[in-house]
């Protein structure tokens, strides 16, 4: 009970934030929410199930291009395209998982990284369809979701918030379900799980697909809400970012990705005003986190004071 109240309260606080924050920050918040959905997807596979992927950019891009291509080339309306984006992310995750899950640990990291790199290069190579490096800008009429105009700040925020809320509640329900326990079992002890009659490969594949759906929806939403899809979203950097958000906020916590995405977004936003080498912050944050706070903010909080935090 306490748990659901906390998460509803967070959602209400976000509603409030939109009402009181100046437009610049409210707008940032929309981006943060969409990125947080991506990070939640990453957290499902990494934080709960221990699958350290370096290739989630591929799943984000699958959603982004899945939706963007349908809207741009086939004239599909935005809402079905958003759903298609989620499916594309899930399907891509399934495909990658079928191969990559034959490996584990360091090999899994490298294999996912390489598959993502293949995706990134393919987007550049087929630039006739994908727009390659330059990307594709979506026009106003292509960005109407249920009559809401995504070129306007306020409706865009509401759509972002609704998506985030759905993702958050689904994830909360997921981690508290029986399946949520299976996710932890994959992280904690695969051999034991096998000897309890569980099929680790199948379970991990399902986890990756769910993670892919989250990532794909986030990618699709990013394209539709902010009107642009480009090859850079498939680059390694977009595999590292969700990992960073999750590590910062707390791997294996429901609210960690939101917290991490918010903090990191503003940290990068702040430093990029000062220097062109703002990515150094990302690098330094990674090193500092693995060294001194591998559990992240909420993970540490849970360990010390709030053992009930999901």
């Amino acid at each position: 009970m306490k748990i659901w109240i906390l998460h509803i309260a967070v959602l209400l606080a976000l509603v409030l934030a939109q009402l009181v924050l100046p437009p610049y920050h409210a707008n940032n918040l929309s981006r943060i929410l969409v990125l947080a959905v991506f990070a939640m997807g990453y957290n499902i596979s990494f934080g709960y199930a221990g699958l350290l992927s370096l290739g989630h950019a591929l799943l984000f891009a699958a959603g982004m291009y899945g939706a963007g291509m349908l809207v741009h080339h086939a004239g599909m309306p935005a809402l079905p395209a958003l759903i298609a984006g989620g499916l594309a992310g899930g399907a891509m995750a399934g495909l990658v998982g079928l191969l990559a899950l034959r490996t584990a640990g360091v090999s899994f990291m490298i294999v996912t990284l390489m598959f993502a790199q293949v995706g990134f290069l393919s987007i550049l190579y087929f630039n006739g369809v994908t727009g390659g490096d330059e990307g594709i800008a979506l026009t106003g009429p292509q960005r109407q979701i249920l009559g809401l105009d995504m070129t306007q700040d306020t409706p865009r925020f509401w759509v972002a918030l609704i998506l985030f809320a759905i993702a958050l509640l689904v994830k909360l329900a997921l981690v508290q379900s029986r399946f949520g326990r299976l996710m932890l079992a994959m992280r904690e002890n695969e051999e034991r799980s096998r000897m309890l009659g569980l099929n680790p490969f199948g379970i991990k594949l399902k986890i990756l697909v769910i993670s892919g759906v989250f990532s794909g929806v986030a990618g699709a939403a990013y394209a539709l809400l902010f009107g642009y899809l480009g090859g850079s979203f498939a680059s390694v950097q977009y595999s590292i970012l969700p990992m960073l958000y999750v590590l910062l906020g707390g791997a294996g916590t429901v609210l960690g990705p939101l917290l991490g995405a918010g903090l990191m977004f503003y940290l990068v936003d702040f430093t990029s005003g000062l220097t062109s080498a703002y990515l150094m912050v990302v690098g330094a944050a990674l090193v500092v986190l693995v060294l001194f706070a591998p559990k992240g903010i909420l993970g540490t909080l849970r360990e010390r004071w709030l053992p009930w935090l999901p």
Partner: peptide
């Protein structure tokens, strides 16, 4: 690996 990714960016 995570740390050397950080190192790479730095």
């Amino acid at each position: 690996i995570v740390a050397t990714i950080g190192l790479l960016y730095i």
